[in-house]
Amino acid sequence: MRTVNQRGWFFVLPVLILVAFNALMPIMTVVNYSVQETFGNNVFFWQGLDWFEQILRSDRFQAALGRQFLFTAIILAIEVPLGIVIALSMPRKGIWVPVCLVLMALPMLIPWNVVGQMWNIFTLPKVGMLGYFMNDVLGVNYDMTQDPLAAWITVVVMDVWHWTSLVVLLAYAGLVSIPDAYYHAAKIDGASSWSVFRYIQLPKMKTVLTIAILLRFIDSFNIYTEPFTLTGGGPGNSTTLLSIDLVKIALGQFDLGPAAAMSLIYFAITLMVSWLFYTLMTKDDAG
């Protein structure tokens, strides 16, 4: 039987109050909006569960959801292995450690809308350096404002550039915490570098990687600013991810009811995936 000291709750009380104001009260308001219709002026009419039914069955929502899952799957499939590889190849000791760490942290220090603007200017054909280089030097037809595939590649590359460092730093923190004795033992046993990775480094990185994947999943699933400033959801709707569509419905069309229903469905998906992932990754430790 575990003995739990419940006094710890008093120390998290300030955070609970903060969360109540910036998360709990907004979400309660959203629940209230999701079952009502409003035309502004703080006047509401009961609508029941119609918005949920409408959103769940709309092609527009299903398409945006599909794009969202695709985006998250692609960036996780790139950023996690890439981050581990970079972390493995970083030095453990010496003068280059702080240099590498600062270089890695740089992209994460840039505000999200600035990242979007940077990549927009960088990749615009004729104007941007990359756009000019691709079209006029290499002769590749690359125009992220016209071609959906080019827009997708640009958004994915931008996210990889911005956020792989997070995986790198977390994985690196996991790596440096492994005592040298493990490596000595592996060397004596004549273990290959793959088995060192598989049986020493990967298990030791498991906890931080769980956190890294969780953070990257939640952040990329809720991503808004970067693709919005880069492509504005276009060309057409091709990079309109779930949050961009949500803001269009809520603030563009001022359909607060459907937008509230949509954001609750969105929230349920995020919550479920995060819970499933966390539970599966920590299952063996608890048992």
Binding site: T29, V31, N32, V35
Partner: peptide
């Protein structure tokens, strides 16, 4: 159950959603 609970307040409560929470 479905009328506005406090019409002058900003969170758009109804008795039904209030009961849910």
């Amino acid at each position: 159950w479905t009328d506005p609970l406090w019409p002058d307040f900003w969170m758009a409560w109804t008795p039904a959603t209030f009961a849910l929470f």
